[in-house]
Measured scan of single mutants.
Amino acid sequence: MDETGKELVLALYDYQEKSPREVTMKKGDILTLLNSTNKDWWKVEVKITVNGKTYERQGAVPAAYVKKL
Rank of each mutant, 00 (worst) to 15 (best):
M1K: 13
D2W: 13
E3H: 14
E3T: 14
T4I: 12
T4F: 12
T4C: 15
G5A: 13
G5W: 10
G5M: 12
G5L: 11
G5D: 11
K6Q: 11
K6P: 13
E7G: 11
E7S: 11
E7R: 11
L8K: 11
L8T: 07
V9H: 01
L10Q: 09
L10I: 15
L10S: 02
L10V: 15
A11Q: 00
A11L: 03
L12P: 00
L12I: 09
L12C: 12
L12K: 03
L12W: 03
Y13F: 12
D14H: 05
D14W: 06
D14S: 08
Y15E: 01
Q16C: 13
Q16P: 05
Q16S: 10
E17L: 07
E17W: 06
E17M: 11
K18R: 14
S19K: 05
S19Q: 05
S19M: 05
P20Y: 08
P20C: 11
P20W: 09
P20F: 09
P20M: 08
R21S: 13
R21C: 15
R21Y: 14
R21I: 10
R21M: 13
E22L: 05
E22F: 06
E22M: 05
E22A: 05
V23A: 05
V23I: 14
V23L: 11
T24P: 06
M25F: 11
M25G: 00
K26A: 08
K27C: 07
K27I: 05
K27S: 06
K27N: 02
G28M: 03
G28V: 03
G28A: 02
D29I: 04
D29Q: 12
D29E: 09
D29W: 12
I30W: 04
L31N: 00
T32L: 14
T32P: 13
L33E: 00
L33I: 03
L34M: 06
L34E: 01
L34C: 07
N35Q: 10
N35F: 05
T37D: 15
N38M: 07
N38F: 06
K39H: 10
D40H: 14
D40C: 14
D40E: 11
D40P: 01
W41N: 01
W42P: 00
W42C: 05
W42T: 01
K43Q: 15
V44Y: 02
V44E: 00
V44W: 02
V44S: 00
E45G: 11
E45T: 10
V46T: 11
V46H: 07
K47M: 10
K47H: 11
K47E: 07
I48K: 08
I48Q: 07
I48N: 06
V50R: 10
V50L: 11
V50K: 10
N51L: 08
N51R: 08
N51Y: 07
G52M: 05
G52F: 05
K53E: 11
K53P: 01
T54C: 13
Y55A: 06
Y55M: 10
E56K: 15
E56V: 15
R57F: 08
R57K: 13
R57N: 03
Q58Y: 07
Q58P: 03
G59K: 00
G59M: 09
G59R: 02
A60R: 15
V61R: 00
P62H: 04
P62M: 05
P62K: 04
A63F: 03
A63K: 05
A64T: 10
A64Q: 11
A64N: 11
Y65E: 02
Y65A: 10
Y65T: 06
Y65G: 04
V66W: 04
V66A: 00
V66H: 02
K67Y: 08
K67V: 15
K68G: 05
K68E: 05
L69D: 01
L69E: 01
L69S: 01
L69C: 14
